[in-house]
Design a protein around this nucleic acid. Structure first.
Lengths: 199, 199
DNA sequence: TAAAAAATTGTACACTGTACATTTTTAACG
DNA sequence: CGTTAAAAATGTACAGTGTACAATTTTTTA
């Protein structure tokens, strides 16, 4: 329950104002106990962030189940949707840096990898059989693409530049790359209807 | 000089171990003086990060000047190159979050915007006259794309997944979107030579 | 019940950003 | 030069933080 309460605290105050002492206070533990149980501040935040991945993956799965017709849109909107709805917790994932000598335990890696697996599966399903083995690599690249747009959306870079539809823009980029990976057959649609620029 | 020395300290120890007290000590100031001059920790880090943007822009300009034949590659490699060469300082830009009520001063915005201007100019130069007004929006989107790849490269996500050529992958995504924006004429190159998957 | 194991606590340490009253230094003027 | 006003720099106090560890309490086991 320590991690659950810690996750709540992270969601409420954000990474920069997060403190292990406050988590201990919230759950009725002393700071000494929290340290004995978790090991260190880094271990606590790592556990909280892995929990965020679990919630994120579940969130994505629900979105996917309700949108079989356009899973790619569901994935992109799910990425942004979770980040917006859980801003502090989501941001903490990328704000927290483990020390260089501190490798993420394999169990945590496995849990966090489920989210990527979801994307790989949907991307693979869209590719021709001939190049299906390229799906994992392309999927990772598309996730990175969406991530970049999501970061700029949440940190205000896009707002600063007057961008008003970052989700649609990310989706445009993803669809472009997917269309090309699929063989470039119907690419004219992008030329005629160039995304949603004036949305 | 306070900001210059602060920048050095940030580059050496990274955002999480950065402290205003240490900067004061390095420059021979007392902590009180630093506070009187800078106003707050957030102001100090903000100034340091804006300085990082200045150095980054200069770095990019040099790269661009030496690569007129392929400015897009120069931009992408410059993005990754600076981030790698100035890992701690670069990461601090995105690790530091100003309080919600704290707007980035206009002067800082202007300085930081120069980097984006560089990209917008090169993207605009590549687009047909008909859709040149779409350059700023597309440029921002491509920067976000590259940024996402760069983040995953530096934070170990790509390494964890076995990705070995994140720069080339980002470049592939950018070229795809640019080709489509240019009219989709020579898209077959992407189908035949699908990026650098086995690089 | 007694001993062993596990869980929990309290406290101390060095460090942080912040605030503000003092002191020192610099500059201006007669 | 001396005086004064402004500017710059300082020292200290406060409430926090993560960390460490010996001492204590609770639980389990035999």
């Amino acid at each position: 329950m320590l991690v659950v309460e810690g996750h709540k605290h992270m969601a409420e105050v954000g990474f920069s104002r997060f403190s292990a002492r406050e988590v201990a206070k919230r759950i009725g533990y002393s700071i000494g106990t929290l340290y004995n149980v978790m090991g260190s501040y880094d271990h606590l935040v790592m556990a909280i962030n892995t929990r965020t991945f679990v919630l994120w993956t579940a969130y994505m799965q629900v979105r996917l189940d309700g949108a079989e017709k356009d899973p790619i849109r569901a994935l992109v909107e799910g990425y942004f949707g979770f980040a917006h709805a859980n801003r502090n917790a989501w941001t903490a994932i990328y704000d927290h840096h483990l020390p260089p000598d501190f490798a993420l335990p394999e169990e945590h890696e496995a849990v966090r990898g489920r989210l990527t697996d979801l994307v790989v599966a949907k991307v693979a399903a869209l590719l021709p059989d001939a190049c299906r083995e390229a799906a994992p690599r392309l999927a990772r690249s598309l996730v990175a693409t969406v991530h970049g747009h999501c970061v700029f959306d949440l940190n205000g870079s896009f707002r600063l530049m007057g961008e008003q539809a970052p989700v649609e823009m990310a989706l445009d980029r993803v669809r472009e790359s997917l269309a090309i990976a699929q063989g470039g057959g119907d690419l004219t649609e992008f030329v005629i209807d160039r995304g949603s620029q004036d949305g």
